[in-house]
Computed example of a mutant assay.
Amino acid sequence: MKRALKRLMPGLLLGWFIEINSVFGQLPVADSISYYRTQLKAHYKIGVSAHRGASSAALDSAAPYSAAPENTLATFRLALQMQVDYIEVDVRTTKDGSLVILHDGTLNRTTNGTGPVSDQTLADLKKLSAAKGMSDAFKSEQIPTLAEVCQLLADWNARHSAKTNLYVDCKDVAPEPLVAVLTRYGLLADAVFYGSDEKLLALKSVAAGAKLMPALKRADQMAAKIASLHPYAFDVSWPALTEALVRQIHQQNIKVFSDLLDELDTPAAYEKASRMGVDVIQTDQALQMYKTLAAKPTH
């Protein structure tokens, strides 16, 4: 019985979020996402980034279920319905130079294909399902192109006053085509870019105003990274985060993002991050974060 319920849960969750007859349907419960977002903004200046889209949802803190396949248009639609501040995407390049969204360097884990993404053409990839291990309801989901995701986001932002921006993880992509696609859809200025320092420097040479977000694993790395990259934000490792470090980064007019994933994706961690003054939390559990921080101020 439990196994059958788990197989059904993704479809039930998807139906809860999105009306059948509308790509961007209104949420059926008036005091759900909109209520939690309003409460969150009333108490905190903190944003949420949906890690690889809305790939997980939680009915309660002990029972996470996969809502839609990661890094697909289905999960990005869900993330938009959740009114997140950022959608995190992993950008890779195909054999024929197309930019696609996939976390892993190989197809094995999330698709019914095998081998490196870089060995495949876009036409090859579009023959695959990007919903390996998921409900049959998602078997038609494909690996999306960056352009398809940008179109989805641009259409959403044109219809809503509260914008959702891109958090771009530069996995395997040259800066020129990346900048060209985001510019075409009007998303470059508000996107944040994560990657190695070398990749971010290359990006800065093409788009001087790009919002760079290097990793910061230790406080003593900060000065050198500021001097070389002039970052918009730091993606600060959770073990390195302290209230003093957040304050020090903010004194440089730099924002603080931090990943709260896997075992860190908990109400206690959300509350701690908010007390420390973190600007954006990246999570797989946006609903759980909303409910936690909307319930009561933590400072």
Score class of each variant (00 low, 15 high):
6 K>S: 09
7 R>K: 15
11 G>E: 14
12 L>V: 11
17 F>W: 14
22 S>P: 01
26 Q>P: 01
29 V>A: 09
30 A>D: 11
30 A>G: 04
42 A>M: 09
50 A>H: 04
52 R>Q: 08
53 G>T: 04
54 A>I: 00
57 A>S: 07
64 P>T: 13
64 P>M: 12
69 P>G: 06
73 L>C: 07
77 R>A: 08
83 Q>H: 15
88 E>G: 01
89 V>T: 08
93 T>A: 11
94 T>P: 11
95 K>R: 15
96 D>T: 08
98 S>G: 04
99 L>V: 03
102 L>K: 07
103 H>V: 11
103 H>Y: 13
104 D>G: 10
108 N>D: 15
110 T>A: 15
114 T>K: 11
114 T>M: 07
121 T>M: 12
122 L>N: 08
124 D>F: 07
125 L>M: 12
132 K>N: 14
134 M>C: 12
134 M>S: 11
136 D>K: 14
137 A>F: 10
141 E>T: 05
143 I>K: 08
143 I>D: 07
144 P>N: 11
155 D>R: 07
157 N>R: 02
159 R>C: 05
174 A>M: 10
201 L>I: 07
202 A>H: 07
205 S>L: 13
218 R>P: 04
219 A>G: 04
221 Q>C: 08
227 A>S: 15
228 S>G: 03
239 P>T: 06
240 A>R: 02
242 T>H: 09
243 E>W: 02
249 I>V: 12
249 I>Q: 01
251 Q>D: 15
254 I>T: 10
266 T>N: 11
267 P>W: 10
270 Y>V: 02
275 R>M: 09
277 G>D: 00
277 G>F: 00
281 I>E: 00
286 A>T: 12
288 Q>T: 07
293 L>D: 01
293 L>H: 00
295 A>L: 13
296 K>D: 03
299 H>F: 13
